[in-house]
Write a protein that binds this DNA or RNA. Structure first.
Lengths: 191, 191
DNA sequence: TACGATGCGGACCGATAGTCCGCTTGTGCT
DNA sequence: AGCACAAGCGGACTATCGGTCCGCATCGTA
């Protein structure tokens, strides 16, 4: 059962594709404006390479998001409090919400692209499931929150990419103003 | 400036298209599985007719939703309390949220299709803007809600079609259980 | 009935996600 | 180094879909 190492050119191409796609999505306003041909051309590879590597368009976007999200996942799973495990529940809940919101703010184009690509509902995406489970478990320790599962969904819904996009892009708030509003509201909800 | 009456065959076709589209979206699980060709074929008209009448795919879906939403709009704007104007703010807020949620539950496929069709973000759709403005104004009269505008967005986010779909379809809740949870949570939030 | 306006429909177009297969290239072995 | 073969490549090709176009049919009217 020897595991064959990834070929050097394959690794190089994978990086090129990810970098090109990242830049393209960041630049474009609407996610649908970035086609797979665009990505292939920008990365200097053929379309076949794209699809063999990532399966389909959604797979490519998912790979981009996963790469960006990894540090946050680590920090939540095994980092120091308040975001990591071990601290006070209330503070962890607030820290988690703020971290998720900050992630969406920093990667609006990408998360927007992911929700847009759809495939399935956002509620079945791996990272959403993880965040929800963590938040739900934390909320269970708070006496003022009657239904932790549902409350977790609603609080996370307040960080949805298109809502954030609307608040920032249309209503003209700054990222920090949105973070402040969510913190205040969540604070009030958690008692 | 005489207004020309709509031709009889045109009216007949418009009804046929709306009925056919309604049925197709209701039957199909994923909105994207319903193509404009499907609708045209089911309605027994040509594609040209579809597009002349409704502009584009989003226009067709919007027309379907608007038709269904009209009674609710009326009830909110000019109906009797608690949903209509004139009653206690807190009760009106709760009634509005419940009515919106009920609408989404009764028309999941259609509202899902509308959000999916995108075009712009759901936050710029006419009915969302209306609901948000009403809810925001009502929340302004409640002392326990510090930021009415933002709170209105978050509460409405709790009624989003794909979240509802997830709660009902994946987590297995009944519509009434979802309504109850939202009512409890909103009650708590409004003080 | 005759005529102009309105509406019809489906062939057609451009874009785009995804497939396929002959060719190239990297890698491990001798 | 040279070889053999698997792994990977790329871009022509296909299928599908939203949207357009225009010659033809149908409706309302005088």
């Amino acid at each position: 059962m020897t595991v064959r190492r990834e070929r050097a050119d394959a690794a190089r191409n994978r990086e090129a594709v990810l970098a090109a796609a990242d830049a393209l999505f960041a630049r474009s306003e609407r996610p649908r404006g970035v086609s797979m041909d665009d990505v292939a051309a920008a990365a200097g590879v053929g379309k076949g390479t794209l699809f063999r590597r990532f399966g389909d368009r959604t797979g490519l976007i998912r790979a981009l998001v996963e790469a960006r999200i990894e540090p946050l996942r680590q920090a939540v799973e095994a980092g120091p409090p308040p975001l990591g495990p071990g601290g006070a529940p209330r503070e962890r809940a607030l820290a988690l919400l703020d971290a998720v919101l900050e992630f969406k703010l920093a990667n609006r184009h990408l998360t927007l692209a992911l929700e847009d690509a759809g495939g399935g509902s956002p509620y079945q995406a791996g990272h959403y499931v993880g965040w929800h489970a963590t938040l739900r478990d934390v909320l269970r320790d708070l006496p003022d929150v009657p239904d932790a599962d549902y409350a977790a969904h609603v609080l996370l819904a307040a960080t949805r990419a298109d809502l954030v996009e609307h608040l920032v892009g249309v209503e003209g708030l700054t990222g920090d103003e949105v973070r402040r509003r969510l913190a205040d509201l969540a604070s009030a909800m958690l008692g």
